[in-house]
Simulated assay, not measured.
Amino acid sequence: MDLREVFATNLRRLRNAQGLSQDDLAYEAEISRSYLSQLEKGAFYASLKIVGKLAAVLRVEPAELLRLPASKPGREARK
């Protein structure tokens, strides 16, 4: 999984866990909804400034948006 996919997955997961719509998150982070949508699709890379804004609105550390998913038991890590 490339870093864009990791970021996109975490962003979507955290947004949904907080019950925020894309419109709400985009408004609070002062970015466009279409840009947020592209980030969640993994189409764009996010700058550190955007990672910081999104993390602040989601009330998580920026590293949480880049954290790799835990590997599932019984599966070997892919190389």
Rank of each mutant, 00 (worst) to 15 (best):
E28G: 00
L48N: 12
R13N: 04
N16I: 07
S34D: 11
V60H: 13
Y27M: 06
R33K: 14
L20S: 01
L48C: 11
V57I: 12
Y35R: 10
F44M: 10
E61V: 13
G42P: 09
A29V: 01
L66Q: 01
S34N: 14
F44A: 04
Y45S: 14
S32D: 15
D24L: 03
L36N: 05
F44R: 15
A46K: 08
A63R: 12
A56S: 15
A17D: 14
L36Q: 04
K53N: 03
G42L: 04
V57K: 13
I50L: 02
S32H: 06
Q22N: 07
S34Q: 12
V51R: 09
L25V: 10
A55F: 09
A56T: 15
A46V: 09
S21L: 09
Q22W: 03
L20P: 00
R13M: 06
N16K: 14
E28C: 03
P62G: 12
L66P: 02
A56H: 12
S21Y: 11
E64C: 07
R15E: 02
F44L: 15
R33I: 04
L39P: 07
I31K: 01
R33D: 05
S32I: 03
L48Y: 07
L58F: 14
L66A: 01
K53Y: 00
A55N: 09
S37Q: 02
L58W: 13
Q18I: 02
Y35W: 15
Q38Y: 03
L66D: 00
S21A: 12
V57A: 13
A29Q: 00
L14F: 13
V51S: 07
K53S: 06
V60F: 13
L65N: 06
L48S: 10
A63N: 07
Q18C: 03
A29W: 00
L65S: 06
L36T: 05
E30Q: 08
A63D: 08
Q38H: 04
E28Q: 12
A46C: 13
N16P: 00
S37A: 06
N16M: 08
A46D: 10
L48V: 13
L65C: 11
A46F: 09
N16C: 08
K49L: 12
E64Y: 03
L48G: 14
R59A: 15
I50C: 03
Q22I: 04
S37R: 03
L25F: 08
A17I: 05
E64R: 14
V57L: 13
S21N: 14
A43W: 02
V57T: 15
L36D: 05
A55W: 07
R59M: 11
A46Y: 09
E40D: 10
L36R: 03
G19W: 05
S37V: 00
P62Q: 12
Y45L: 11
S32W: 04
G19T: 10
V51L: 15
L20V: 00
P62H: 15
L39Q: 05
I31D: 01
S21T: 15
L54Y: 02
Q38N: 05
L65E: 06
P62M: 13
L65F: 08
G42I: 05
E28S: 06
A63T: 06
S34G: 07
A43H: 08
N16F: 07
R13P: 02
Q18F: 02
D23Q: 12
A63M: 08
L25N: 10
R13E: 07
S32Q: 06
L20Q: 02
P62R: 14
D24H: 02
A43L: 10
L66Y: 01
A29D: 01
S37W: 02
E28T: 00
S21F: 09
A56K: 15
S37F: 00
